[in-house]
């Protein structure tokens, strides 16, 4: 079926089988490879993207059902300027191998935007086997602290 997607502000038209997930559409059809496939069944969070501003698991979302704009980790920075959450991940060393990082950052952006009461709980849908967890919390806190001081 023919579908159109808004990916990081860009309109994309493509033809996919109804069973194609948003994750495979992004990675295998559109070469948007920031979102990662860690489990393909909603258990690890590495594929987290924003649809209509909300974090969703791209591996559990059928591409053909997506109507709202999609933002992936590639769509956060403006030019060479990192998004504050991306910068905080660099500053706090909130990653090691980096494979879960795209998903962590998309969830962390949501944590900041929603001003969630418990960062550790909110971020618990994103597995990190390198176990950068305390640094991920520190990265979210860095951005929230900066916001608070404005």
């Amino acid at each position: 079926m023919d579908i159109s997607l808004q990916i990081n502000g860009k309109s994309e038209r493509l033809s996919v089988e109804p069973g194609v997930t948003l994750l495979d559409a992004l990675r295998e059809r559109l070469d948007v490879t920031g979102p990662k496939k860690g489990c393909d069944r909603g258990q690890c969070g590495a594929c987290t993207v924003h649809v209509g501003g909300r974090p969703v698991l791209a591996c559990l979302t059928l591409a053909a059902t997506v109507r709202e704009p999609v933002t992936t980790v590639e769509g956060l920075a403006s030019g060479d300027d990192l998004h504050p959450v991306q910068q905080a991940f660099v500053d706090q060393d909130a990653l090691q191998c980096g494979f879960c990082t795209s998903g962590q950052i998309m969830s962390a952006v949501a944590a900041v935007e929603q001003d969630v009461p418990d960062v550790r709980e909110f971020m618990s849908g994103n597995l990190c086997r390198c176990s950068a967890y305390p640094n991920i919390v520190a990265a979210v806190d860095q951005v929230r602290g900066a916001d608070a001081s404005v």
Partner: peptide, 22 residues
């Protein structure tokens, strides 16, 4: 020194094995 590949990893530009689409 910060991890040198962090900027690539936080922007999704680091291409892991299965991120290649020849």
């Amino acid at each position: 020194t910060a991890r040198l590949d962090s900027p690539l990893k936080v922007t999704g530009r680091a291409r892991y094995g299965s991120d290649h689409n020849p």
